[in-house]
Nucleic acid binder design. Structure first.
Lengths: 101, 101
DNA sequence: CAAACATATCGTATATTTGCGATAAACAAA
DNA sequence: TTTGTTTATCGCAAATATACGATATGTTTG
């Protein structure tokens, strides 16, 4: 897209909140995270079974959650166990609570 | 995009969280909301002065925040005063806190 | 009514997101 | 080593988001 020359210098807090929020900004990803909260952990395949989406699509949503730092994957060959990244989860909570004060 | 025939039936809570999060998923909108939290209210022009973005772009971000229910506009002709929509703001806080427990 | 002002909306260009099927990669088991 | 299992990645298409300038809208003032 056309863009102003100037590059906007947001504060770290601002970009952190926006980054977490963006990752949370899709109902499928919320569903995945709610599932993880209940099960504490799960495999990609479990989610593929639950969600009416292609395996590649689920994998892509997981990647986005991982890139945002909200989940982490642990190798349990040939599967991968995904869990909530508790440290970043707490950080996100702190940011949101403080922001939505 | 290509889509599975099936329409996904997310819970209301899921779509509510995702909708709020999506609106919060851009640093410019976080900046606007932080400004509103400090000033309590402001005019579109104030934000145009602060942000290195075109007036139409700022207006568009405000529309998204309004559509998500996070802010509300009050006519103070010829200006429009924007404030945080406290009721929905609290609702968002509740949803996030509960979700990020 | 005309002019000035503030803001929204339109039209458009580009970037990003979302989804799929196909394929690749990594590992276990035979 | 081959086969099966699981997951990630690639390539593509469609949808949505982001940004801009131009224009429209609504209101006050002269």
């Amino acid at each position: 897209m056309k863009r102003s020359i100037e590059i906007i210098n947001y504060t770290k807090e601002t970009t952190d909140i926006a980054r977490f929020a963006k990752a949370l900004g899709h109902p499928t990803r919320i569903t995945i995270l709610m599932y993880l909260e209940n099960q504490s952990c799960c495999f990609t395949g479990d989610l593929v079974d639950i969600l009416p989406l292609a395996q590649s699509t689920v994998s892509q949503h997981l990647k986005e959650l991982k890139d945002a730092g909200l989940i982490q994957g642990e190798l349990k060959p040939p599967k991968i166990k995904y869990c909530i990244h508790q440290e970043n989860w707490n950080k996100a909570k702190e940011l949101f609570v403080n922001f939505l004060k």
